[in-house]
């Protein structure tokens, strides 16, 4: 948390510097995939945006009270050129986005023949399954294997595929763990899925990212990523306790 605080301050002071700073090593495969794409896009967009901004400033500087202005002359070729150039850049954006999107952690539905509801039981994987019920205003986290339920705290093992099966008791909520790159709305009446594989142990923040009433801001919690043995011990302890 210390580091974030420092980063936030730095960021507020210098936009460009903070955007160029190499992103902190990601804590999950989801986050890593997103960060990688984000950096790629930044490499394209940042110079481009800076270039346009600099042109703007330069134009104002150079042509302010210009003694020798010239009239506008139409130039369709120029128009077509910059339209095409923008389109080319955007094709790149679209293509790289599309490939990242197919990542089975970011779009779990691509794994199970397209339907998000093919969730827990019939998933053909050996994911660790965790059932999460969101309600006004908290999280009930159920571990089917050990049959225990914990509130407002999600504990997962590191370096394992984890599958969250999400339901809501009342209104729409959204599970949001920034460090792990997880965000999935939880719609009443449907079963949502989110997947991840955490790569670093630690405690991460959990938020509800969809306005769900007066207690929305208090609907936060923790995600603990434990190493394999600690996780097993924790589950056991819960099952007994």
């Amino acid at each position: 948390m210390k580091r974030t605080r420092w980063l936030v301050r730095l960021g507020a002071l210098a936009l460009v510097a903070s955007l160029f700073a190499t992103p902190a090593a990601a804590q999950s495969v989801n986050r890593a995939a997103i960060d990688e794409l984000n950096t790629q896009l930044l490499y394209v967009a940042l110079p481009l945006a800076l270039f346009v901004e600099v042109t703007l400033v330069y134009a104002i500087y150079r042509f302010r009270n210009n003694d020798d202005p010239s009239p506008t002359v139409d130039d369709p070729a120029l128009e077509i050129t910059w339209t095409a150039a923008t389109a080319v850049i955007l094709v790149f954006v679209g293509v790289s986005a599309y490939f990242t999107m197919a990542n089975p952690y970011l779009t779990p539905a691509t794994m199970d023949d397209g339907s998000a509801s093919a969730a827990a039981a019939d998933a053909p994987t050996d994911d660790v399954v965790i059932e999460i019920e969101a309600y006004q205003w908290g999280w009930a986290v159920h571990y089917p294997d050990a049959d225990v339920t914990v509130r407002d705290r999600i504990v997962i093992p590191v370096d394992r595929d984890v599958r969250f099966v999400l339901t809501s008791r009342d209104v729409i909520h959204s599970i949001y763990v920034p460090s792990l790159g997880i965000k999935q709305d939880i719609i009443p009446g449907t079963e949502g899925v989110a997947r991840t594989r955490a790569t670093e142990t630690g405690e991460y923040r959990l938020y509800c990212a969809e306005l769900c009433g007066d207690g929305h801001a208090r609907m936060d919690g923790q995600v603990a990523v434990l190493n394999g043995s600690a996780y097993g011990a924790w589950v056991e302890e819960q099952a007994e306790g």
């Binding site: 986050r31 896009l41 954006v93 990242t100 999107m101 990542n103 970011l106 790159g181 965000k183």
Partner: peptide
């Protein structure tokens, strides 16, 4: 508009 980025 880029979905993976929007997820974040």
């Amino acid at each position: 508009a880029v979905i993976p980025v929007d997820i974040l």
